[in-house]
């Protein structure tokens, strides 16, 4: 039990009306782990990710974050979310703010840190994702890849302990996927704990410590990406991999 896990999910169930989307999910993410969730659309992987930062609330089961069982009745979920960064498929940058303001927004107004420090941190983050020259530009003037890198910087600005990525490259033109993946790769190398819903098998193979295959609301198979991709044990995993690779 002394193993330092970041998030542990036990017997998680979630339904939307009659639709049972997550069925008895068990998953453990250790510190500095990079976990890729793969599976067909509708398999529940995005919902699982959204449960991890409580954008969706579970019906039953436990979510244990940094050793604490988090329940909406006993915990301020906003405080928990401060430590869980999220990057969305469609970026969701704030269009009425410049790139720099987007990155500064949460540290300034949620953490209420002093502006000078927040600004400096934001500039450093933008430098890190290679967008220093775009500080004063509004999001509408950016390419998809640039938007997603700003979104990553915006999430990192809260200094989260874990980053969740919900199909971060699915809305991008093919030629822009690489710049986002390399930013994520860099982050993984720095030791960030990451859970990534992705269709980028190359990224999963190269960067992930674990790949998790989901089907119909259940986790079918978990393994090191090489093993999972090369020698899937389950027929369903094999079928899925045949269809995407």
């Amino acid at each position: 039990m002394s193993e330092s896990y970041m998030i542990k999910v036990e017997k998680l169930n979630k339904s939307f009306g009659d639709l049972h989307v997550l069925k008895d999910i068990d998953i453990t993410v250790k510190e500095s782990d990079v976990v890729c969730l793969i599976g067909a659309s509708g398999s529940g992987k995005s919902t699982l990710l959204r449960c991890l930062n409580f954008l969706e609330l579970k019906d039953s089961g436990n979510i244990i974050f940094e050793g604490e069982k988090v329940e909406k009745e006993t915990h301020d979920l906003n405080k928990v979310r401060e430590k869980v960064g999220m990057v969305f498929q469609h970026f969701h940058l704030f269009p009425h703010m410049t790139v720099l303001e987007n990155v500064m927004e949460a540290p300034l107004h949620v953490k209420k840190l002093p502006k000078d420090q927040v600004k400096k941190d934001a500039q450093d983050l933008l430098k890190k994702v290679g967008l220093s020259d775009k500080e004063n530009v509004y999001p509408s003037k950016l390419s998809g890849g640039q938007k997603q890198r700003v979104a990553i910087a915006r999430a990192l600005a809260m200094k989260p302990d874990i980053m969740l990525f919900d199909e971060p490259t699915s809305a991008l033109d093919p030629e822009l996927v690489g710049e986002v993946l390399s930013t994520m790769k860099e982050l993984a190398l720095e030791g960030m704990t990451m859970v990534v819903v992705t269709h980028e098998m190359g990224f999963a193979r190269e960067v992930a410590d674990w790949a998790v295959y989901m089907h119909d609301g259940r986790i079918v198979e978990v393994g090191h990406p090489e093993d999972l991709f090369n020698n899937p044990k389950e027929q369903r995993t094999k079928n899925f991999l045949d269809s995407v690779l």
Partner: peptide, 17 residues
């Protein structure tokens, strides 16, 4: 877009903020 509220919430904002 609903995603705007979600993005805000994901950064730790309260619904009001």
């Amino acid at each position: 877009d609903k995603g705007q509220m979600e993005a805000g919430r994901s950064l730790g904002m309260t619904a009001g903020l």
